Simulated scan of single mutants.
Amino acid sequence: MVVCLSEEGRRALKSDEQLQRDVYEELSWDPTINESNIRVFVKDGLVVLQGHVPHYAEKVAAKKAAMRVKGVLAVVDDIEVKLSFAGHRKDEDIRKAISNALTWSVWIPESVKATVDRGWVTLTGEVDWEFKRKKAENIVSHVIGVRGVSNLIGIKPRNSRRDETKQAIERAFRRNGRITAGRITVEVLNEKVVLHGKVNSWAERVEAGRVAWSAQGVCLVENETQVSNDAGNSARSE
């Protein structure tokens, strides 16, 4: 995790108190989250979430909500999943429910398997796109009884030219309204993509990584972009 701010960028930051209020409001605004048992701590743009929720899906939603808030540079998710009495399931029942859910998905191949140990799910297998890997994890996160997920699904490499992959990602950045084009450089090394440069927010950093992962043949993305609140001003002045 790299968070880099110039002096100008630091002066543009919200106060910790304001950012904390904004994160609490965003958690409250999201109908999938009951924020009553979630605590928010903020230090220089770094948000730490603590407390407990009754479902793993709610834990995931809380982190995403915090990352949406303007001024957030990074999020540490320390929320614990405390299943309610009604939410407890036997591991074998959870495994069967996950197997059925994955089988009925149009995106997930039969090679993807799940094991369950005391509510913790481990996904294995191989897919040909990152979005399928993420889709499998998302499906599992909404199954009752799940406490956590380890996504060990691999991605099969595809033959593609480096220059074509680089140009395709750069065009995707320019099309994307959430990304300040021209501030991120793309480096392609075989099936690995490395991103450098500055972004305006943690949310933009995540979006840049998502776009890079969408390129055909990419098996690994190293997102080394730095969050800098003055990145947008610099881009507009060029």
Rank of each mutant, 00 (worst) to 15 (best):
M1H: 09
C4M: 14
S214Q: 14
I144Q: 15
E58A: 06
K43P: 05
G154A: 11
A235R: 05
G197N: 05
Q167R: 13
K135V: 07
Y24P: 00
E92D: 13
M67A: 15
V60Q: 13
Q167L: 07
V40I: 07
S15D: 09
E35I: 10
K64E: 15
A74Q: 13
I98G: 05
K96Y: 09
S6Q: 12
V23K: 02
A97T: 09
S201L: 04
T185G: 10
W29C: 14
E222A: 13
V60A: 10
S84H: 08
K135R: 12
I179Y: 00
P54K: 11
E204H: 03
V218R: 04
T103F: 15
A172C: 09
G177V: 04
L19C: 01
I179N: 02
V3Q: 10
A168K: 08
D22R: 02
L46P: 02
E17R: 11
S237T: 01
G148N: 05
A168W: 03
V146P: 05
D16E: 03
L220N: 11
I184Y: 00
A74C: 11
L83H: 03
I169R: 01
S111F: 07
T124Y: 01
R10T: 07
R162L: 14
S228V: 02
R162I: 15
V112M: 09
V221T: 01
E238L: 05
L152H: 12
D91R: 03
T225M: 06
G51Q: 04
I108S: 02
T185S: 14
T165E: 01
A12L: 14
F41K: 14
V188M: 04
I33W: 04
D91G: 15
E92A: 14
V227K: 10
G217Y: 01
S214T: 07
L73A: 08
G119R: 06
D22S: 12
